[in-house]
């Protein structure tokens, strides 16, 4: 099946052209009763098209905040941030990204199919096109046949897959994922990681992925961004030498272990400062 998303990203899109997401000297300070909190300080990062970028770090390091800035759910207090060459607000209006939250957050009063249709309804797609898109994205997340089930009839992992389908439904080039598998158990998580890899290979979307699991970050990513807290900042950006084709047992190879080690070192360095 060829979908319109891939049509817009011809061939191997990881060229050295302009990054889809570009942050330079980004600052975000929250004013709280206990004084200012520096959620992000001097964050500069370019995310190339088609990349799978993981953000890893302890809580309070600003990884989720950075993702929310890209989604225009938070607004930086300094520096610049562009998404597809636009401001985050413009990019949101141009349907540049789909956002997947930690909880599936499906509407209990809608079937899986209707849940996936939610953004399509809001964005004004016609009935026939909605139907076609629902079928296509449910197939992508391997939930074909569950269209008419209600969320309570699905397991947690299946619900999260449905929420990924919902984020994919309107063909945004960028997928923002905020610890999407954080609430799931290890076995389900492995499976979803594998599926996400396949999905990424098929759709060639640019994915920004927040996690606190080192194996998950190393397994999934082309780029691993290590962050540290107080103030939230980037301490290391690791480009993964792993091949694009990644079976689960790649996690036992020396290359994998070496990258994991480097990530761990980066995290530790952030603590010691």
């Amino acid at each position: 099946m060829t979908d319109t998303a891939t049509a817009e990203v011809p061939g191997q899109a990881r060229d050295a052209g302009a990054p889809v997401i570009e942050a330079s000297h980004l600052d975000l300070t929250f004013q709280t009763a206990d004084g200012p909190v520096h959620a992000l300080r001097d964050v500069s990062l370019g995310i190339p098209k088609g990349a799978f970028v993981s953000f890893i770090g302890p809580s309070g390091c600003g990884k989720t905040t950075f993702l929310r800035c890209i989604a225009a759910l938070e607004h930086p207090t300094g520096g610049s941030l562009t998404v597809n060459g636009m401001t985050p607000d413009e990019a949101r209006k141009a349907r540049a990204y789909g956002y997947v939250f930690q909880a599936a957050g499906l509407y209990p009063w809608r079937t899986i199919g209707r849940n996936v249709a939610l953004p399509l309804e809001i964005m004004g797609y016609g009935k026939a096109e909605q139907k076609e898109r629902i079928a296509r994205v449910l197939e992508l997340v391997e939930l074909s046949g569950f269209e008419n089930k209600y969320p309570w009839q699905l397991s947690g992992g299946m619900q999260q897959r449905a929420s990924i389908a919902r984020a994919l439904a309107f063909d945004a080039d960028i997928l923002l994922m905020d610890e999407p598998f954080g609430a799931l158990d290890e076995i389900v998580r492995d499976r979803l990681n594998e599926e996400l890899m396949r999905l990424w290979a098929r759709t060639e979307k640019t994915i920004a992925f927040v996690t606190h699991s080192i194996p998950e970050a190393v397994y999934l990513s082309t780029h691993i961004v290590v962050m540290s807290p107080r103030p939230g900042r980037i301490t290391d950006v690791i480009e993964s030498p792993l091949p694009k084709e990644r079976p689960l047992d790649i996690r036992d190879t020396p290359e994998f272990i070496e990258i994991a080690h480097r990530v761990r070192e980066g995290l530790r360095a952030g603590y010691q400062e």
């Binding site: 789909g98 956002y99 009063w109």
Partner: peptide
């Protein structure tokens, strides 16, 4: 807040948030 954020990522207007999210939630 997550449900409201999701609606914001769709740039959903207030009326849409009301009919599609708030009202069914309140039943």
């Amino acid at each position: 807040p997550m449900q409201m954020d999701l609606m914001r990522t769709y740039s959903a207007p207030k009326g849409t948030v009301f009919w599609k999210l708030r009202l069914p939630s309140s039943v």
